[in-house]
């Protein structure tokens, strides 16, 4: 039987980046995102649940990571360094840093929908399942997020 370390290593291989990115999209800080990744895996291993398929398993992990990230924001409102932003600035990727700044300025619920839709390629129905919302709400959040982003990028950066 696989021990916890082997199981965690397999999960990291399969879902590590997805969980880390979901957490980073909330926390904007690598150290905090790493904490969330670690705690999500611990919760998974402690839960001992079995999943029908990989999609179900991934959805569970993302949901836990998002909930833990929200809690972390609540308890630790001051965020540390945004390594992604620093990297983009140092590499002079101006265009990407504008987009990242704009996404960061979105309300949390819009940012999570944008992340799951664009980065994870989740359908609105999947997102509804992960975030425990109605699909119609997800669709309207996605539309509002796009509108807000367009507005921010056009007004602030003359970029759209």
């Amino acid at each position: 039987m696989e021990n916890n370390r082997d199981r965690a290593a397999a999960l990291l291989e399969k879902y590590g980046n997805a969980i880390l990115r979901a957490a980073y999209s909330y926390l904007h800080n690598m150290e905090d995102a790493e904490d969330i990744l670690q705690d999500t895996l611990i919760q998974y291993l402690k839960s001992g649940s079995e999943y029908n398929d990989e999609e179900h398993e991934k959805a569970w992990l993302l949901r836990v990571a998002i909930n833990l990230s929200k809690n972390k924001i609540k308890y630790n409102k001051i965020r540390g360094t945004d390594e992604l932003m620093e990297g983009l600035v140092s590499e002079e990727k101006e265009e990407l840093s504008f987009v990242w700044e704009a996404v960061k300025s979105l309300p949390e619920k819009y940012a999570s929908v944008v992340h799951l839709y664009y980065q994870e390629g989740c359908s609105t129905a999947d997102i509804a399942g992960i975030l425990n919302k109605k699909e119609s709400t997800v669709r309207s959040d996605l539309k509002r997020a796009r509108d807000k982003l367009k507005k921010i990028l056009k007004e602030e950066y003359d970029f759209g």
Binding site: N17, E34, Q38, L84, V99, V114
Partner: peptide, 26 residues
């Protein structure tokens, strides 16, 4: 523009050091 979001996220990856730290702590 939002297509660039994926390009952004490609910069966020689990490094070998991070993986070792996490496995150690778990």
């Amino acid at each position: 523009t939002l297509g660039k979001y994926n390009e952004l996220m490609e910069n966020i990856v689990v490094t070998e050091d991070m993986k070792n730290r996490i496995l150690h702590n778990i």
